[in-house]
Design a protein around this nucleic acid. Structure first.
Length: 494
DNA sequence: AAAAAAC
């Protein structure tokens, strides 16, 4: 870990931004022996989850050895705009937060110090003139804390009006972010509300009371609806956050909704601040975002540095479709003691099919996708988060942002490809991989490829794109090969 | 021929 942040002058403010100082002060000795580095977003889940875990007979409570090392996000490139100097916050004390918020960070969240992305981005978020921020950082590196803390620190607790808004691509992510915000803001008295369908319990939008909560976190449709019905006042809104921002501003994502919401706020309050966070920004989206958001501060990670080193990737060529089920059955379900697993599939139909096939063989699996009722979705996700289930089959509804720290294994039952072109969906691949190895934990990914079709080509392109090493398991039904792979990944003992 | 949100 040498110098961590390099400065790059922007074209528009090249002379002044040279003075912008960002000092990487996270250069502590790398050879800490007894003391584990604990940093923002690392929850002390061993304590917290012990109740749920103790009810389980088959669930492993073993944690990999070298957890809690910060992911390799030491190559964040910072581009500042304007002449405000920013100093990296090596401690939360450097941020001038309220005592209530500090208490939330230390007592509730049990944080000790900011992660790298937090150290760099938080001063940019909090320091006037509150410039826009486009921030890329690795999966599991603590982005949520950045924008949640950003929102909490900018809200005036004495003003009972919406002041901060966060838009998320899925209801699950909105709920998850709300949980983090409630916890972190526990002592601040700041109020918050989730805006997802049916969160207003039978009361129609037209008849509900206007939002008085100070922070609103939700999905695009519901937020738009609340705004259309004048239930979400924008007069005091000063900060707008896009979680998974590249998806929220992609043409095949939520671009129209997002732009609409931005324009509506901008009309009322031109000085509002926009925060865009994601682990991925492909060139197309990056170009668009840079044209859309005026003179932002920017943090980017090089594509080749984005793959998580702590998560080992493998590929298996399966002769036929049914063989993929055999792999899951014989090589994964029978292991039982490597933590939780998410199996990603392409479609809702295959989610049901894979679920049914495994259930008929007597395995205890669950599945989620967007056509299920909200109650069922919530129930399945909660069971998984509570460690009551071990293996979850999911569509890409959970590909992004889903934070379950005990997920050690990700299986790509289907490779992620773009709908229109059949080309690899590099971003989705990276996000799926990022469901394992949260906060530097060890993990593994098995990519199940079909022999015929373009799976192998898709895989090769992904390997090249990220410069990632994906080892091949030569014979698809060799138990030994899977075991040595898992040992290599650090998930199985010798 | 799609995941997602929601009209």
């Amino acid at each position: 870990m040498s110098d961590t942040v390099e400065k790059v002058p922007t074209a528009e403010a090249s002379s002044s931004s040279v003075e912008a100082s960002i000092t990487g002060e996270n250069t502590e000795p790398t050879t800490t022996t007894t003391e584990k580095t604990k940093w923002g977003d690392v929850e002390d889940d061993d304590e917290e989850e012990s109740d749920a875990v103790s009810e389980l007979k088959y669930l492993s409570i073993k944690e990999p050895e070298s957890i809690l090392d910060e992911p390799e996000d030491s190559n964040i490139k910072a581009v500042t705009s304007g002449d405000t100097p920013y100093t990296s916050a090596s401690r939360f004390e450097d941020l001038n937060l309220s005592p209530e918020l500090m208490k939330g960070l230390y007592v509730e969240m049990k944080f000790e110090k900011p992660s790298k992305i937090q150290a760099i981005s938080l001063p940019m978020i909090i320091t006037p003139p509150h410039k826009h921020l486009i921030a890329q950082a690795h999966n599991g590196s603590g982005k949520t804390t950045c924008f949640v803390l950003g929102m909490l620190s900018r809200v005036d607790p004495s003003l009972r009006q919406p002041q901060a808004l966060c838009i998320c691509p899925t209801r699950e992510l909105a709920n998850q972010n709300m949980e983090v915000l409630q916890k972190m803001g526990k002592f601040t008295g700041i109020t918050a509300e989730v805006a997802v369908p049916e969160s207003n319990q039978g009361v129609t939008t037209a008849r509900r009371a206007p939002v008085s909560a100070q922070v609103v976190i939700g999905t695009p449709g519901t937020l738009k609806k609340w705004m259309a019905f004048k239930k979400l006042g924008l007069n005091h809104l000063k900060i707008l956050v896009f979680d998974e921002a590249d998806h929220m501003l992609a043409t095949d994502g939520f671009r129209d909704d997002s732009l609409r919401i931005m324009k509506d706020i901008e009309r009322v309050n031109p000085n509002y601040q926009v925060l865009l966070f994601s682990a991925t920004f492909n060139e197309t989206v990056k170009d668009f975002v840079q044209r859309t958001v005026k003179s932002p501060n920017q943090l980017f990670v090089k594509r080749e540095d984005l793959a998580l080193d702590s998560v080992k990737q493998y590929k298996v060529v399966c002769p036929k479709e049914q063989d993929k089920i055999e792999v899951i059955k014989d090589q994964i379900m029978e292991l039982g003691d490597i933590g939780q697993t998410i199996i990603f599939v392409k479609t809702k139909v295959s989610a049901s099919k894979v679920h049914k096939a495994l259930a008929e063989m007597g395995y205890d699996v669950t599945s989620v996708h967007g056509s299920m009722s909200q109650e069922d979705r919530d129930k399945i996700v909660k069971e998984f988060k509570d460690c009551l289930t071990q293996v979850l089959i999911a569509t890409d509804v959970l590909a992004r942002g889903f934070d379950q720290q005990r997920v050690n294994l990700v299986v790509n039952y289907n490779m992620p490809t773009k709908y229109e072109t059949g080309e690899p969906d590099y971003e989705v691949y990276l996000h799926r991989v990022g469901r394992a190895g949260r906060f530097g934990r060890k993990g593994a990914v098995f990519n199940l490829l079909l022999d015929n079709g373009n799976d192998k080509e898709v895989m090769e392109k992904i390997e090249r794109y990220f410069g990632a090493q994906v080892k091949e398991i030569k014979s698809w039904n060799s138990e030994e090969e899977y075991k040595s792979a898992l040992k290599e990944a650090g998930l199985l003992d010798e």
